[in-house]
């Protein structure tokens, strides 16, 4: 299996960035960095829109980020109903890298605030699926 292992439901089977899933298996969230011009990307890209190169390195997103915004979804699209409610958010890490994802379900509502420090945690889901979430640092 390749990229379709990513997330609760995947809508993409084949991508040149499928190594992303291998890094999740190693407990790492990685983005890509252009070998020619150094531009860094998350989510990962296999093509650089800055210099048009297609040779990429992978870098790890580590350390603390800051939660910029969030929402608690009380309804879900088809296929995700059993998960509600869940919190979606965007956090900013070093070099301005932003990460979109869900927040740790065990965090109480009053612990979730814009500006809170968060870290990335890799998740193993049912059926060998893999994802990541943001949790309190």
């Amino acid at each position: 299996m390749g990229f379709e292992q990513f997330g609760i439901i995947s809508f993409t089977g084949v991508t040149k960035t499928e190594q992303f899933v291998e890094f999740l298996k190693n407990n790492e969230l990685r983005g890509t960095a252009c070998k020619s011009c150094g531009a860094k990307f998350f989510p990962p890209r296999s093509d650089c829109d800055k210099c048009l190169a297609n040779d990429m390195d992978w870098f790890s997103i580590t350390g603390e980020g800051t939660l910029i915004t969030y929402t608690k979804a009380m309804y879900a699209p088809a296929g995700f109903e059993k998960d509600v409610p869940y919190v979606l958010g965007v956090a900013e890490f070093s070099d301005g890298i932003k990460v979109f994802g869900r927040l740790d379900k065990s965090l109480p509502d009053d612990a979730i605030k814009a500006g809170m420090k968060v870290i990335v945690r890799i998740l193993g889901l049912e059926d060998d699926r893999l994802s990541y979430e943001l949790t309190a640092a």
């Binding site: 997330g7 609760i8 929402t71 979804a73 699209p77 869940y86 979606l88 869900r102």
Partner: peptide, 15 residues
């Protein structure tokens, strides 16, 4: 990169 988390329009505008 986003729909695998269960996204919908109200949540995006809510952000």
């Amino acid at each position: 990169w986003e729909a695998p988390f269960g996204t919908m329009m109200p949540a995006y505008y809510a952000l």
